[in-house]
Design a protein around this nucleic acid. Structure first.
Lengths: 338, 338
DNA sequence: TTGAAAGCGCTACCAT
DNA sequence: ATGGTAGCGCTTTCAA
């Protein structure tokens, strides 16, 4: 087998046509049926694969949409990415995916590398970014959508919900159920702004319903894990033994807390209520099932895709910076644990 | 603000040097300190971002490693990808990630698109692929590594373990514990070959230890979910009420089965043992904790990265097709559920 | 250490 | 419906 990698010129020569005809066949433009078949046969026979960088350079059109998430292991973000992917793939684009590990500085560096591919759009997670990140995005004129949060002043477009409000709704539910000594467990890291917003919602709920001083345990890094939840719950009980409900920053930690209750023989919800956030699979199927705040990660991904596509069209028409905010619903799902 | 996107030529002119000097500064080649600083200042001031497609086209070197996984939502694959990413990022490469949805035909189509970027390497999941996939890979001469399985005849390199053997080891454990009427629950789809291999291991275990006829429930699609597990477990009890242990194709379904036991008041493991596969977080922290087969997804990703990097070097030296198989350890982890 | 020229493989544009 | 030419922005190669 030859070491040789065929180019469009090879296909053209072999088929006895011009490069342009080959290019048109691949782009599905106007070519006669006979011609198309002849060219396709040669492509097949040679095993020709077009070179994307040449195409991009020549046309000025990139096939990429950049998507930056804090973690791919989180099913929420994985779901958002999956739907975003479906949305953009339908338009012939592909995802260039990056994993920031909950680190804004790393988000900035990743973005710098990825902008070199001149993407048609950029999806970011959250509304907190470095100044350099914002500057790069502004300068590049690329369509941008921030997700999972709705900032007061988005870079451009945004789709998400208020984590503060959502957490506060869960507090309303707990209060209505009669719980009065409610604790909160979340991560120790300042990097997870959505987690901090949820804690703010908890505090707002305390004030709103007159539930006294905060009982907050910050423990563990990002992403929040089940074991963090169990440990944090133990710390919470040490600090405030009379706690009658615990609100968790995520279903993962809620599950950890719930299992710790099992181990200690604490009946849930009779003696201790447990609330989660995110509607992860585990909270629906565990026993007792965990009350949680449900959002639709797929909707976020799908809408982000639509916004980016619209932004790409707008940019081509010379229009500047769409600026739309869209909110997705969140909903307190009451299950057995509260 | 201008609509204009600066090129290397702009930087060069502004700095009063040639394009080559700018290129060298960016590549960190030999340039005098004074010159470097002058150029970097202009780059900063202009907000210049190099164009990756031009660079790729000109140098013939792509910055991409392609990674194709059945699903990003599975934490096992997410972990593998994470480690692969760490390994290749250290060498200045970036991942082009694809999600096949457990569909070999989609794997083929994704690969076709991604080969257009002339990647330096390709990571595949599993050892089953379409003929066209194999042909493309062979022709492109790109370094390839198959993961999560160790095929008899890999396309090139492979890193993984035998799912058959691993499942059989779990059967040995169950047999030693005294269980004799063991069922198996897995997915209904033929697409998950690793799942089928695990079922084969179950059947081999039955024969090896003289445990009678198979009790197999195939239920639900890919990826396997917790709810599939609960439903399949119910079907298993309907079909073979005297079952005393259930081996599950994944920790997800094992957890579903375990929760179904809770609901039915079946004590675990006294009346029913539950075994999983994959050592997911949930199996370690649930109650009772679930015995499982642990593999190291991070090791698979890291080794895959090393193999690909080695393959890229070999290719540059004109060498052809490295062919190495590496096995990672698996281990039966005994917990409370068996 | 720096520069000039050529060319990577493709598509836009204008002809025919 | 098809072809020819120019050029995208960079790196390679060779020269100074």
């Amino acid at each position: 087998m030859s070491e040789f990698m065929p180019t469009m010129a090879d296909v053209a020569r072999e088929a006895g046509v011009s490069k342009m005809t080959v290019s048109r066949v691949l782009a599905d433009r106007d070519v006669s049926v006979a011609m198309r078949e002849r060219v396709l046969a040669v492509i097949e026979q040679l095993g020709y694969v077009p070179d994307a960088s040449a195409g991009t350079l020549s046309s000025g059109r990139s096939p990429f949409i950049v998507a930056l998430v804090p973690s791919m292991s989180s099913s929420n973000f994985a779901d958002t990415v999956h739907s975003l992917n479906a949305a953009v793939t339908a338009h012939g684009l592909q995802l260039l995916l990056g994993d920031t590990d909950y680190d804004l500085k790393q988000e900035e560096q990743l973005l710098r590398v990825m902008l070199a591919h001149r993407p048609e759009g950029v999806m970011l997670t959250g509304s907190y970014h470095t100044a350099a990140t914002r500057a790069m995005l502004k300068r590049s004129k690329v369509p941008v959508v921030e997700t999972w949060d709705v900032p007061r002043t988005p870079i451009q477009q945004a789709v998400g919900f208020s984590n503060v409000d959502a957490a506060c709704e869960m507090m309303r539910h707990l209060h209505e159920r009669g719980y009065r000594r409610i604790g909160f467990i979340g991560g120790a890291t300042k990097l997870d702004r959505r987690g901090l917003d949820r804690q703010m919602g908890y505090r707002e709920g305390l004030r709103l319903f007159g539930l006294g001083e905060p009982r907050v345990i910050e423990h563990g890094g990002s992403p929040v894990t089940m074991s963090h939840g169990g440990e944090a719950f133990s710390l919470l009980l040490d600090a405030w033994p009379d706690t009658d409900a615990v609100m968790c920053v995520s279903d993962m930690s809620a599950f950890g807390a719930l299992m710790e209750c099992h181990r200690r023989g604490i009946p849930v919800p009779r003696q201790m209520a447990v609330a989660g956030f995110g509607d992860f699979e585990v909270s629906r199927y565990c026993f007792p099932s965990i009350s949680t705040v449900a959002v639709d990660p797929h909707a976020i991904g799908r809408i982000a895709g639509e916004m980016l596509l619209a932004g790409a069209v707008a940019r081509k028409s010379g229009l500047d910076g769409l600026s739309e905010k869209r909110r997705v619903e969140f909903q307190v799902i009451v299950r057995e644990s509260t």
